[in-house]
């Protein structure tokens, strides 16, 4: 039946055209804002527009002159680095019992340690502010660091635990049977194999802390302004086009984090972490 066959072919083509159109539309939709903000930051005009009015580095140059941007960027770097360091120590240690341990309540403990991931960070920011005021701590960098640790420690636990779960448990037994004690087994065999996972988790944790606005909004206070807060103010209140230059830099850092994750464990595995 040629007519039926033709109909079938038309249906087939329509189906794939529809799938591809929606999918490519989705891809473009995902990519567009990032792309546009980077391109727009090179504008030579007085406002951030797309397409940009001529190309120049004037807004990047202006960034250098903005002292408060420099200070807040430096502060964000310190907060994110410190928070990541603490989160890595806590998270890597916690991942071991969660994967290899055999004790009652392991699943529940895992769910508990992951719970900051699903709690709206705005709600956590409010709660942390109440907690900090109740015990009388002044709003300061250490307070900010600790609150960031609470929301990023799950990333480290997850990626470390996922890498550990993929690691052949027999490696440990092999090392022990060859004469390595528990400590040497950890340092020489387990840790080197977990490093990619830990690095990926640490990179995600770092970027989450570095980009965090909602928790910082509550806990930063006027004297501990972070870069996202400065950027937020520049866009919403100052209408400063240099914000696009900062955004472009932030996109670049994110780009580096994604590349690091790809280099360390491969993106196809990252999404299962």
């Amino acid at each position: 039946m040629p007519a039926g066959r033709l109909g079938g072919r038309v249906g087939h083509v329509t189906f794939w055209v529809a799938i591809w159109t929606l999918a490519l539309g989705g891809l473009l939709y995902l990519l567009l804002p990032t792309l546009i903000i980077v391109v727009a930051s090179f504008t030579a005009g007085e406002y951030i527009t797309f397409p940009p009015q001529g190309l120049s580095l004037r807004w990047f140059t202006r960034l250098m002159a903005l002292a408060e941007v420099r200070v807040s960027a430096w502060r964000s770097l310190i907060v994110a680095t410190a928070a990541t360091a603490v989160a890595v120590v806590l998270g890597v240690a916690a991942a071991f019992p969660l994967v290899r341990g055999r004790f009652a309540g392991r699943e529940a403990l895992n769910a508990f340690l992951m719970s900051p991931l699903i709690l709206p960070s705005l709600v956590y920011g409010l709660a942390a502010l109440m907690f900090v005021s109740a015990i009388g701590l002044p709003l300061s960098v250490p307070v900010l660091v600790l609150s960031h640790v609470a929301i990023i420690v799950p990333y480290v636990i997850r990626t470390t635990a996922a890498s550990l779960a993929l690691l052949d448990p027999h490696l440990e037994e092999a090392a022990r049977s060859l004469g390595a004690n528990a400590w040497k087994t950890f340092l020489r065999v387990i840790l080197p194999n977990l490093l990619p996972g830990i690095a990926t988790g640490a990179a995600f944790a770092f970027i989450s802390s570095f980009d965090n606005l909602t928790v910082s909004l509550f806990l930063a206070g006027p004297r501990v302004e972070t870069l996202p807060i400065r950027l937020f103010a520049m866009i919403n209140f100052d209408f400063d086009p240099a914000a696009a230059a900062i955004s472009a830099v932030l996109v670049l850092i994110t780009f580096a984090v994604v590349l690091l994750a790809h280099w360390a464990v491969g993106l196809t595995r990252v999404i299962r972490l």
Binding site: H170, E173, A174, A175, R176, S177, V189, P192
Partner: peptide
């Protein structure tokens, strides 16, 4: 006696060679 002090050699099913 802890395993690393027993001097027993083991070959595992998937060999457990240290990948790094």
């Amino acid at each position: 006696v802890l395993p690393h002090l027993r001097n027993i050699g083991i070959v595992f099913q998937h060999y457990a060679l240290f990948p790094h």
